[in-house]
Nucleic acid binder design. Structure first.
Lengths: 217, 217
DNA sequence: CCAAAAGTGTTATCCTTACACCCATGA
DNA sequence: TCATGGGTGTAAGGATAACACTTTTGG
């Protein structure tokens, strides 16, 4: 589960939700949330159930299947196969967390249990790719937002500075974002009030199969 | 497993290898090759083992994980989860097939067992997407080839007519294909002899994250 | 010499980045 | 009226599709 955190600060950062193991093996290391699949549920239902134990699942705006990790010795004990998912939580949400659970910046991960570090890396790669040619940003941004906030969401996720002006035009041309018509109040230090936007659709969609958001330079 | 078949004919076509069920349930319908995972192997090893029973696995140039199908009732009997893979066989290869196994054009599938039809559709979508921004064509094309053959491979896979000239320049600029220096003999009806090419790398590689092969029009 | 197939040159178009400039607001 | 951020205009660059034109071969 990813979320862009610190949208009000100067440097918002993409975070991942981790859970610290209380027992051996790998005690003290951090894990992705998850658990066993029951016989009467499919993987998506299972993941939703697992996550419900950690957070308010209502806040999960997107959930998508990723790779399967199946090395026979990936965890000690009986053979276990991990099917990983990408979950996204919109930015202003602040889910209640159990005490053993914390958000961690993806660029500064703590010691990770088993093969969970490559899992996070893989998930981030998929997310970055999809920011280019889908409207997946809806699942990370607030329902209504100012362009500079959206730019922060994209910058934090992609890992490089995005130009607000061009982001606006690219997303407007693709009809990914829409003006609400209202404007936000200007900050305490003055400045022109910004127009409010929302995502045109609050459902995952491939907006332009061949589109690109290129890094600067 | 996909292969472009009929490269020498006027209209080469993308095919998928299917196997006809001899027993209930779904007797007579066609299945993707596969089988159960053993405790001491990971998914890739397992798939290679399963396929070895159908074809010469040496001819498998690319193998890649796709989606997991996990609906509890997707097959009758005990709960079974299917992890699907995309396998590619280069074009001139003609693997020996068991009698219950046949190549079928992906655009004209026979009655499919269980949820195997959407599996094929999903695999083809992934393949088409990857033709644009990776060198995955190496796994479908002959080791050495003439540009018009490569155009046929791309056309069959993508499902629309590709322009030879532009394909050449796109792939050369990305350094995906290389001239061998030799030329093929011209056909019986005359014509200038064509230069032979090969793929620069015989390993899967993302060549240009933001590249596109757009359909005509 | 002609048909056929391969290969090259050139243009038009589209998308995106970069950046200068204008606009609206609070103090 | 000035600083601050928001918004628009415009130009430049890069990649691709379209297509006319040239080259090389067999009959």
């Amino acid at each position: 589960m990813f979320q862009v955190r610190g949208l009000d600060s100067r440097q918002p950062v993409l975070n991942v939700l981790l859970w610290q193991r209380a027992l051996e093996p790998e005690r003290g290391k951090w894990s992705l949330p998850g658990g066993r699949l029951r016989d009467d549920e499919d993987l998506i239902s299972s993941i939703r159930r697992q996550l419900a134990e950690k957070v308010d699942v209502q806040q999960l705006a997107h959930l998508e299947q990723l790779a399967v990790f199946s090395a026979p010795d990936r965890v000690p004990g009986p053979r276990t196969i991990a099917s990983t998912f990408l979950g996204l939580v919109p930015s202003p949400a602040t889910p209640e967390l159990p005490p053993d659970t914390r958000w961690h910046p993806v660029n500064d991960l703590p010691p990770m249990a088993f093969d969970h570090a490559p899992m996070v890396e893989h998930a981030r790669t998929r997310l970055v790719a999809k920011m280019s040619y889908t409207n997946i940003g809806f699942a990370l941004a607030p329902t209504e937002f100012v362009l500079s906030s959206l730019r922060d969401v994209y910058s934090a996720t992609l890992g490089y500075q995005v130009d607000t002006t061009n982001l606006q035009r690219v997303l407007e041309r693709r009809n990914v974002i829409t003006r609400t018509g209202t404007t936000a109040r200007s900050g305490r230090s003055g400045g022109r009030p910004a127009a409010l936007y929302r995502f045109t659709e609050a459902r995952y969609r491939v907006t332009d199969e061949f589109a690109a958001l290129r890094p600067p330079g």
